[in-house]
Amino acid sequence: MEQHVFLIGARASGKTTLGRELARELNEGFTDTDAIVVERIGMVVEKYVEQNGWAAFRRAESQALRDAADQPPHIVACGGGIVLSRTNRDILQQGVVVYLRVPEEELIRRLENDPKSGQRPSLTGRGLVEEVREVLGEREPLYCSCASLTVEHGTLAQQVRVVQDFLSSSMG
């Protein structure tokens, strides 16, 4: 692989799941920026944000992205808010950016079924439906502006095939 493949999208869009499977299929390395952050801060995101605030978390997230980008090209699943920083968006543009676009209703269903509240704390303090709508409304234009490829909701196998085909045609 000549460039990093950065996976972006909302919380619960499946970036980590797709990233692991894509890395396995392509025989490439895999990094999850959220996992790097949690390892470095030594606690769940929710607790860290309570103690230090979202700005501190976003700085840690940006550092995790910089560190991943400094490694040889591989698959990188990015935190949902990684696109909020202009500097992060510039880093993403150095690779292939895959936006996992999942319908709002599906994101809500996934978050209701597996909230992982320590890993996925509330971003707005609102109810789940209102929060998903608000956050997607803010971030969708950023996700779209960064994306080299947008992958619509589908099975994991379908998503992997779409990304593989894109990589083959754009890098081959």
Score class of each variant (00 low, 15 high):
M1D: 07
E2M: 10
Q3I: 02
V5P: 01
R11Y: 01
A12C: 03
A12S: 09
K15A: 03
T17M: 05
L22K: 00
R24P: 02
E25Y: 06
G29K: 09
G29L: 04
V37L: 14
I41Y: 06
I41C: 07
G42S: 13
G42C: 11
V45E: 00
E46N: 14
Y48G: 05
E50R: 15
Q51T: 02
N52Y: 04
N52F: 04
N52A: 01
G53I: 09
F57H: 09
E61L: 05
Q63Y: 12
Q63M: 14
L65C: 04
L65Q: 11
H74M: 05
I75N: 02
I75G: 00
C78H: 10
C78R: 03
V83K: 06
L84A: 07
R86P: 07
R86I: 13
L92Q: 13
Q93H: 13
V96N: 13
L111D: 01
L111Q: 11
P115K: 00
P115A: 00
K116C: 08
S117G: 09
G118D: 01
S122V: 07
L123R: 11
G125C: 12
L128G: 09
E131G: 15
V132C: 09
R133M: 04
R133I: 12
V135G: 06
L136F: 07
R139L: 10
P141N: 02
C146Q: 13
T150E: 11
H153Q: 11
H153L: 13
T155N: 06
Q158D: 15
Q159M: 15
V163E: 11
Q164C: 09
S168F: 11
S170A: 08
S170R: 12
G172L: 12
